[in-house]
Design a protein around this nucleic acid. Sequence first.
DNA 1: CGGGTGATAGACT
DNA 2: GTCTATCACCCGG
Length: 198
Amino acid sequence: MIYTPIDTSFYKAPVLELAQNLLGHYIVHEQPDGILAARIVETEAYRGPEDQAAHSFGNRRTKRTDIMFGAAGSVYTYRMHTHTLVNVVGGPIDTPHAILIRAVEPIEGLEQMRENRGVQLKMHDWTNGPGKLTKAMGITMDYYGHHWSKKPLFIAEGAGVGKIVVGPRVGIGNSGEAVHYPWRFYEKDNPFVSKYRA
DNA sequence: CGGGTGATAGACT
DNA sequence: GTCTATCACCCGG
């Protein structure tokens, strides 16, 4: 299977639209040992300045959040203890919006994903969480500031998506009103969507 | 050196 | 399904 990166204009849509548009597309990671591809099935939007759950709330700008003030389509990775989480930057320059990739569905490079995750795990546990999918696909902090339209790590046109479900976001703790914003999007009945904990 | 940053694996019910 | 112990790095001061 040959994959082609989506043009940068794709990322210029309003961030809530972009979060939904990403569903069904492929994340592709070209590695020396082979190609890894997975379908995006769950995303969450974060709208920097006015969203208490975002790292960039109130335009908080540090070296860590700096990339979110950059061009739409940039890769924002951050480390959560043992896990790396990956985001797609949205919004215009100086508007720190981002979309967290929460779950993907393995498409190609299954053997390598299995090795990355541990051979004893069931397939549905490979990528059904934001920390899991980065490990399965070999995405590391080295990609901080990379752009999703460039190889070896890019997003490619998918083959469509099923019914999209909208709901509140996960794991954002006490973030005031922002907790209730329906900014989580996922494909209905997809077994790789991460489970919601109330 | 202290604060910021939630998800994971596995045990239990 | 539900619970919870455990997990590490980056940054600013």
